[in-house]
Write a protein that binds this DNA or RNA. Sequence first.
DNA 1: ACACTATTTATAAACATTACAAAGTAAGAA
DNA 2: TTCTTACTTTGTAATGTTTATAAATAGTGT
Lengths: 144, 144
Amino acid sequence: MAEEKLHEAIDAMKNSGVRITPQRHAILEHLIQSMSHPTADEIYKSLEGKFPNMSVATVYNNLRVFKEIGLVKELTYGDSSSRFDCVTTDHYHIICDDCGKIVDFHYPGLDEVETLAEQVTGFRVGDHRMEIYGKCPDCQKSKH
Amino acid sequence: MAEEKLHEAIDAMKNSGVRITPQRHAILEHLIQSMSHPTADEIYKSLEGKFPNMSVATVYNNLRVFKEIGLVKELTYGDSSSRFDCVTTDHYHIICDDCGKIVDFHYPGLDEVETLAEQVTGFRVGDHRMEIYGKCPDCQKSKH
DNA sequence: ACACTATTTATAAACATTACAAAGTAAGAA
DNA sequence: TTCTTACTTTGTAATGTTTATAAATAGTGT
């Protein structure tokens, strides 16, 4: 499953003429395997073991490359640092206001919204993002 | 119209026990009158004339206060700096991938999505945000 | 294996945002 | 009105993320 996605991603890179380096391989693998939505720094730290000499710049560079190919999406919430999410299936995120937990949330998609937006604004729409905010079950229990 | 909104905002501040300073008044006024979605720095610069001694910190401090009262929303896109939007009526934003222009876009709201999200994830939902991305009419013409 | 070019690395720089302490001021009480 | 107190502002320094740069390195097609 994860193997499969990794191969697909590598194929996408080949098709885009992007070189496959060990660092890129590892960053992608981490993004696919980790169920979380890591920051650039978290990725950097978690690969320190395998790549003691890897630079933070490499992480940022490659996340940008992945974004440009469309393999990865950047999530900019209120916090200081961006989070990165492997684009696999269409899904949205629901975020806890208290503890910051991010949970994937599948929804049919909002094609009608995109269509209406095109008509109203004259834009040619390519994409959209949505996040839902609330209080996760754990934080609801600990009502302080 | 703008006058009215300003008064409402000031009342909201009074009710929350937040002091009304000239700086806060000016920042709010600017946010309401400007049809754009300014960054903290843009607000700071545009008030240089009236408040030559105002600190950037004041702008940030007060934007945080306004956010806490619910008068203002912070918009974090891919760019480096956040943008701030006066909460008036429910609306979404459509953003040009090329030139970064932000256009307001009214839509009935996505209550069903919130409801479904509650059921699926167990969160208690409070809010959501959505942005649509595309190419604005101007940038469509100048096909480079 | 070679050559060409993209990529990595290390470091410094840029940038937005926050922290802090001292000076100033809004707002209610006397 | 004046006083008092706690909240705000200011100026500056610090923090933290992200980008720029140049030299060293390593993929990839031939």
